[in-house]
Design a protein around this nucleic acid. Sequence first.
DNA 1: CCTCCATATTTTGGATCCAATATTGAAAAT
DNA 2: ATTTTCAATATTGGATCCAAAATATGGAGG
Lengths: 222, 222
Amino acid sequence: MSSDEARRRPPTAQQFVLGELRLAITTGRLRPGAPIRQDALAEELQVSRVPLREALKTLEGEGLVTYKAHKGYCVAMLSLDDLREVYRIRELLEEEAVRRAVERLTDDDLGRLESAQEEVERAAAAGDVLAMATANRLFHMTLFDCAGMPRLVRLIRTLWDTTDAYRSMYYGDAGNRERVVKEHRATLDALRRLAADEAVTTLDIHRAHAVAELESLLDHPA
Amino acid sequence: MSSDEARRRPPTAQQFVLGELRLAITTGRLRPGAPIRQDALAEELQVSRVPLREALKTLEGEGLVTYKAHKGYCVAMLSLDDLREVYRIRELLEEEAVRRAVERLTDDDLGRLESAQEEVERAAAAGDVLAMATANRLFHMTLFDCAGMPRLVRLIRTLWDTTDAYRSMYYGDAGNRERVVKEHRATLDALRRLAADEAVTTLDIHRAHAVAELESLLDHPA
DNA sequence: CCTCCATATTTTGGATCCAATATTGAAAAT
DNA sequence: ATTTTCAATATTGGATCCAAAATATGGAGG
């Protein structure tokens, strides 16, 4: 069961379920490819199937689960081709976001990025996989948000969600965590100097490392 | 081939409702900004509110409607900033799709594109706004599909959906229809010669014309 | 032993009913 | 006349129940 009962429960059951499902998928409690039994899940979450199904529809739209009429939902499973495609699209969209962000970057933004990075380093040192994923995401999204293109950021976020099921495996490795920290530092350095090209390049490399690692993970499922 | 009123009803009510809602929004029967009364709509479509709500969740994920807890759904209304952002993202993604498509283009693909274009010209000549929108979409999606990147195409399709509510206004003008026909011919010409750069350029211009027209439509709502 | 078909069980899809929240309108107080 | 309060109403959110479809089961026939 999820231990943290301190966080306030969302105003609707579907939103609560949505959060729980995301967590279950990203932490690997629901494995890619696993079918989702509505009845069992609904009972476990103490809600009826109606809000559960609406949450699943949302996740379907985000590509986190797949759906077939009269067959039901499954946690999405990425093929190697899918993975490469997602990362290629991210490359295109994130480049745009970074370039726009650099144009409008304020000292305040830089401050937020630096504190996000501090959080990443803390989590990396502590070996806290979940915190690492959260902090890393915050770092990147903080940057993208600076672009002032909310729809673009929403798309990027959705693409990130797609591979979230595999992210926990990725951060399980200490070497990966350490490299992420270094690559963020390089990005931050470029951003401080408003060097857009360099920032884009460092992030491309960052991404390439991640996709290479994930590819090997996909070949040898745990 | 299309326009058969005896189209088979989808295997689930939510899919049926989804299609009807898309149609209602793209044809303007549901105006941008209009709140969606679930009870009335459900009765009109002869279904209960459950499948209606699931269809709305799907549309929310695609950005066609907005949702606020306990307040309900509205047909999404695009600001000028939104419109420009959507078209900028399309520019990025469609360029990728076209370049990949050119690399893999077969004679068969070209044949499909040409027949799609014939359909566009027929609809343009007949002044059939709905057929025009459908055929135009088919033309572009046929091209994008050639890229062999299903997720990319899915994203592009979603972005198209976002502005569908305004497309019917756009094709109401005979000059717009005529220009679309010419621009498609230019694109086809470039594709036949596998001239990727040129194809990208013609499509960029095509898009720029559309966004310019839509911008004026957004300023002077009917 | 395998295949095929009929049947039982499981699981999803949808309709109805009830609860919770938001909105509206009218009456009362300033 | 304006604002506030509170009840009445409309609308959304969710639970339960039933229907439809898919899957599993088991037996008859080859």
